[in-house]
Amino acid sequence: MSRVLIVEDEQHIADGLRFNLEAEGHDAMVAPDGESALRMLLVERQPVDVLILDIMLPGKDGFTVASELRAAGEYVPTLMLTARGSAEDVLRGFEAGADDYLPKPFELSILIARVNGLLRRRRWNEHDPPGSSGTSDTPAPDVYTFAGRTLDFTAMQVHAHDKSHRLTVMECDLLRYLVKNANQPVSRRAILQEVWGLPEGVDTRAIDNFIVRLRRYIEDGPAAPKFLQTVRGVGYRFVPRP
């Protein structure tokens, strides 16, 4: 049974979600605010497989909760719910470490599909440490190696110089896109639209924060990047063999 933690201050929505997730065979818990969610995850160390996180919460908001969890090394797959639904909010959520988002009001079937999707990823990560061969319900390992670094898109990890970093779904998708277009410049707009499905008119500079983070994972000197180059006026280029 999978454990889902719902962080939502609107009691009606929290109860409705819990009812549906329990009907799907999950074990659902509710935290009414960010502080109690952080306490359950970081202090009480309650095992949680997926986090459903509302943004507008009393006290600490969803963005803060997500980034504090990541800062504490807790990488529980996180689905953000937002009533505002603006692209800027979505990007802020991804930056804070959310793996997926749904605008309110949401479609129940889509929410359940997204939660199950996150749970599937979680299972791959737990049962198949990078390098092991896949089992029947696991996709073929999707690994890319360059200059002594390994990008494991299935386990969502980066290995470089004996160090490993966990990736969020968003970081993972961005890396995969850059690798697919290796040696070609990729515009910020293309990243927004093709990787994350965000509309035009979003502040494209938001991507820069993601790039900064990815550089920290794969570059020797993130200040003088070799693999993830900036193409002035266009965007970025991934160069596996500089």
Binding site: E10, H12, I13, G16, A83, K104, P105, L108
Partner: peptide, 17 residues
């Protein structure tokens, strides 16, 4: 926005349930 969308989200959730 929040005050309008939250009850709508809740009603939709229960109706779909």
């Amino acid at each position: 926005t929040h005050e309008l969308k939250t009850p709508i989200a809740s009603m939709r959730l229960y109706l779909q349930t």
